[in-house]
Amino acid sequence: MKINLLARFAESIFWLARYMERVENLARLLEVTETFTYDARGNQDWEAILEINADMTRFRAGHKEVTLRSVAHFYILDGANPTSIVASLDMARENARSLRHLISTEMWNQINVFHGRVKALDRRDVSPAKVSTVCRMIKEGCQAHTGITEGTLYQDEAWNFYWIGRAIERADQTSRLVDIGYLRAIRTSRDLSSRAQDTHWGALLRSATGYHAFRRVHRIRTDAVEVIRFLTQDEALPRSLLTCVGGARALTRGLETRHGMNTGRAALATLDGIDKHLRGTDVAALLDAGPHAFIDDLQCRLAEYTQVLGRDCFAQDA
């Protein structure tokens, strides 16, 4: 007989996916910041990351200066920082551990070995000479996980919850990138069309793996409005907000159409709302006002979706 997925496992696999997505994005952001964000005097902007993630206070408690070394330590190795890569991977592995009988052996094996490799890193591995190699290793560890999951995870409801988690987290991460990108832009120069801005918007696009795709679509010089529109409303960029939300919608709808569950309906309705909101947004006007309030609102809407999903599908008390 078919047994439906336990609510606790639905929640665990949703979070396994979110933590892995989070780790991948953070590793990419650190790598891109390290490689592409030198200003004319060779300085890098590490503060924006801390500000956008609202981590400045916690960072200050353990580190004095905002440097590549200290920020990399904080975000990669610092187990006391709940937003660090190590902490996220711990959570991912704990979730995977409770899912071990459901996920493929290959998935578990890779997570276990990858987690061990990251746990074995020390301060020397986040030195300026090595940090980009380490970030690449971490990113590739996440991508190997993604590939193994795509190729081995049985496509029942658990599969839907997994990919919903990836999509929702990815949307959340891209919204943060837009926030950081804008902050860096106005900080680097008041002139939004200078050459420094070109590299800057390039770095933002690279953080969302959209640089070359953007070039194919816009062969003119980088334009702030077009970059933000690309990250927000493009329907082909895997990490754009609209793509992520569209993916989550299809997967949430699939809970009912493919698996006969009616407990995802309310959550689907919130996603429909987000989709409509994104499509209706005027990006040029958004940039005039500064995108922070818009991003904040979007993140709240995504959190609301997660909360409704938790209430209806993860058997959480409302």
Binding site: L5, L6, A7, E157, M261
Partner: peptide
């Protein structure tokens, strides 16, 4: 009963 994502079973 167990609590599944689709209700009690």
């Amino acid at each position: 009963y167990m609590k599944t994502a689709a209700g009690l079973e």
